[in-house]
Amino acid sequence: MSGLRRRLRVSAVLLTATALFAAGCGGGGSDKSSANAGGLEKTELNIGMLPLPETAPIQIAIDKGFFKAEGLTVTKPTIIAGGAAGMADLLSGKLDVMHSNYVSAITTAATGVGKIKVVGEAWTAKPGNFALMVKKGSPIKSVADFKGKTVAVNTFKNVAELAMLSLLKTNGLTPEDVTFKEMPFPQMQGGLATNQMDVAFMPEPFYQTAASKDGAVLVAEPFAGPTADFPIAGYLVTEDFAKKNPKTVAAFQRALVKATEVAISNSAEVEAALPKYTKIDRATAELMVLGGFSTTVNATRLQRVADLMTDFKYLPSKFDASSMIYSGSAS
């Protein structure tokens, strides 16, 4: 936001701050739509995403001008908070497109918190993307040894925990056999070393660093067997936005696919993009396996996520995940 606009906002802010509490009125984003050559309903896109490797295609699309070529203006992606706060940003119109993991997306759609559509895929778990790590010298050698242990995940009731529950089941354990604990990824390495938990669910590059610095040991890959090729995250818009802006959505999809293809074919592009929106430096980026970028939303796999969520009581009943996949006139 420019300094001038900010100054102009001051008085408005003071007023709203006093008035808004008790009132609790809803807010909505203003559409800055304008006529343009491509007939796009909205040219300026606010994209929200987490600073994770999987959102590299958005940065690539900005840097390589893929959005611009489609007539879209995307200046800088907004870094969002995960979970309900991020979803509130999308539903309240602060964001037009939001990167989100599928568990949050399905929960939002299935519980009626918001009507959303998946317009693109971000990441599908591939071998080497995630790992279950234990401390050096830990007696835990396999998933079967997890009984009675504490497992750290980055967020409760989300992808990591769901994958763990599925893995436990495959290994003959029940959800009650382990205790889950929430911990941000950067703290997990130290958490393992100081016995704050027994097992940590870590993505790359965190698990590689934990292994090289503290000698942490990889016991198992969380996404294997029934959860192999597990769809992790995608890009969402609200149903309302999709209905009103089909051409804009199509333009976004084209730019995203193009950028994702670059990310898949040339990992050097990803390594160059990462330091621009994350704190992952180039040297660390080069150690990463990556490879989970995906250009298509697979309905069968997405349904598998929803079914697992029903199995483990994340959802009260069965949910048809295909209903949330966007199928606009992507001509």
Partner: peptide, 12 residues
């Protein structure tokens, strides 16, 4: 935290 993570707004 559990309620927040599960989008269980009434519990939250």
């Amino acid at each position: 935290r559990l309620a927040q993570r599960g989008f269980q707004l009434p519990t939250m």
